[in-house]
Design a protein around this nucleic acid. Structure first.
Lengths: 142, 142
DNA sequence: TTTACACCCTCTAGCCACTGTAGGTTCAAG
DNA sequence: CTTGAACCTACAGTGGCTAGAGGGTGTAAA
């Protein structure tokens, strides 16, 4: 039986995060010691590892919920899990494309800055005059 | 004189976002009509455009605050603006590298999934068994 | 057995950068 | 003068945690 701290160490998760996952129903309520402290077994360890790994791959907690549910029902079709992963892959690719554009623009700004006063700063100038910009308008958060 | 809605349209910003920027001190309090509605001039338009453009390049609001401050003081050295931009570029590059790894891993998962039941689903299997994973442990949010 | 101390508990608030809603007021056109 | 779109304030909610206050538990040594 593991304490929450041990589980945290084993999975590279913060203690608070584990409690948070429990709170939002991503992890089941574990057993407790006589004094009311959480005690975990191997199944919880596996489940949390699954969650963390999926998080590392950028899946949202909602997507992970679906994946866990699929994982709990071995007779269900694989197609859904596949679809979730494909969706995630697509998102990652979109974000990469977006970042690629940002990188180009930032490189341009930085390379052209010759280090005088801010009055002639290329960085600020580019920010001021959007028409010089190559990136598109939408998807600020992407 | 522009209403907040017109300013919003011209800059591709939501009305609430403009009010939010004002609230956190990123934009100055504008003049008001007799009835108390916000009225904007060209300087506010420029400033908001600057902010939006910087946001599109992924700068944080704090970084933008610094950039605006530098832009307001033309006699200051350009070096600081340059440093902020370089920092941002570095962040973008790090995020790209991270996404690159995610993409590889996700592609592997998806390509290997042959579409049976979840019991043998490659996607879920990879998530379950972290040892098969190529991505590193840290930086979940990157 | 007591005491020290690391660890655990709940509850609440905060982070970023918005976004949405409720309930009311103002403005401009017709 | 009426209509209706656009405006106002104030506050709650998003995702995915993270931090802190104020207290209780578990265990090993003195």
């Amino acid at each position: 039986m593991l304490t929450i701290g041990t589980l945290a160490k084993k999975t590279g998760t913060k203690v608070q995060t584990i409690r948070y996952y429990e709170q939002i129903g991503l992890l089941p309520e574990p057993g407790r010691s006589a004094g009311g402290q959480r005690r975990y077994g191997d199944s919880e360890l596996d489940r949390l590892s699954f969650v963390r790994h999926a998080r590392q791959l950028g899946f949202s907690l909602d997507a992970i919920r679906e994946l866990l549910d699929l994982s709990d029902h071995p007779e269900k079709s694989c197609a859904e899990a596949d679809a979730i992963a494909r969706r995630q892959l697509k998102q990652v690719e979109q974000r990469m494309a977006r970042l690629e554009a940002l990188r180009t623009e930032l490189q341009r700004m930085v390379h052209e800055c010759s280090g005088g006063h801010t009055a002639d700063c290329r960085v600020l100038e580019v920010l001021r005059d959007h028409s010089e910009c190559l990136t598109d308008h939408d998807e600020i958060g992407a």
